[in-house]
Amino acid sequence: MPISRGYVAKRLMLSALVILGVLAIAFIMTRIIPARPEFLWAGPHATEEQLKMAREKLRLDRPIYIQLCYYLIDFFRGDWGISWRTRLPVLNDLLTALPATLELVIAAFLLASIVGIPLGIYSALNYGGLRDQVIKFVTVLGASTPVFWIALVLQTALGVWAGILPAGKRVDDYLVYVTGFKPITGFYIIDSLIQGNIPVFLDVLKRLLLPAFVLSIYPLSLSARMSRSLMIEVLNENFIRSLEVWGVPQREILFKYALRNAIAPVIASLGLSFGYTLVGAFMVELIFVWPGLGYYAGMALLSYDYPAVIGVVVLVAIFYSAINLVVDLVHAWLDPRVRL
C-alpha cells in the first residue's frame, strides 16, 4: 500500500481546517438570519427586562466576532453550548441522536454496496440485453427521484395501506417496556443482540428496513450505474483478452481481475455520495419520525435553536471529512497506482 507516513497526518490537519471553516460559516450564517432567538429563550410571556437578560446571557448583545471567539473557546473545551430548545448540552443531544442516524446510514450504505454493485456487474455481463435495459431504466429512475418523495410514497403504500412494515419510529415503545430493553451503544440492532432480546431485534430490523431502503435508493442506483459502466469498460480492456489467451478461466477473469478494476472507483464515488445521503437521511428521519441527527436538526432549525444547528453542521462536517479520508485510503489499498 503506497501510503506515505505523513499523508494521514496531513489529511487530518487539512480536515481540522475544513471543520473550523465550516464552524465559522455556520456560526455567522445563523447569526445574520433576521430572527429574535431571545424570545425563544425567555419564553412567550417574557418582560422587556427578561428579554434583556436573555440577550446578555446568550451574548447576543456583543458583535458577531466576539460571539464567535467565545463560541470557539467553549467549543474546544467540549462545551458546544446549551440547546435553546431542549435546554440540554448540545454535545449530549448530538451523541444521543448520532447512533440513530449512523445505524440508518450504515444500513443504507451496506444495502447500496451489497445490492448496487452486484446489480451493476450483472447488468454489465448482460450488456445490451433485456435485463440490462430494465436495470438501467430502474437505476436512472432511482438516481433521479427525490428521496423525500419516495419516502412518502413507500411509507403510505407499505406502512399505511398495506400495513406490511411499520411506518415510523425506531422501536415499539410497548415492546421495550415489556422486554426491559435498555439502549447501551445507541445502535439498537447491536444493543438488542447483546441483550439477546430477539423480539426487539426483529422489531428494530423491521422498522429499519423501510427508511434504510429509501435512503439507499440514491447510492444504490449510483453504485449500480457506475459499476455497470466501469465493468463494461474494463471488459474491453486489453488485459482481459490477454488473460483469456493465456488460458485463465472466464470466471476468474471476471470475478478477480475485472471486478477489482471496476469496483475501486465505485467505492470512491460511494464515499462522495455520503454527503448527499446524510442530507437525504435528514429528510427520511423527519418523515419516519426517526430520532436521529436529521430529526434533531429539523427541530432545531424550526425553533431557531442556533447552538444545536451549528453542532449538527460541525458533526456532519467531521463525519464527511473522516469518510473521505477512509475512502481515499481504501482506494489506495485497492489500486496500487494511487499514491498518497
Binding site: 486489453n238 488485459f239 483478452r241 488473460l243 488460458g247 476468474e252 477489482r260 478494476n261
Partner: peptide, 29 residues
C-alpha cells in the same frame, strides 16, 4: 486449447491488469 497457441500483444502497458502484480498474473496462468 487456449495457451497451446499463445500470444504476445502490441502494447505491454495494457497487457496486464494494473491492479495485480506480475507474479499474480503468472501464478494464475
Amino acid at each position: 486449447y487456449r495457451g497451446e497457441i499463445s500470444m504476445v500483444f502490441q502494447d505491454p502497458a495494457t497487457t496486464f491488469s494494473p491492479l495485480f502484480t506480475i507474479g499474480e498474473h503468472l501464478i494464475d496462468i
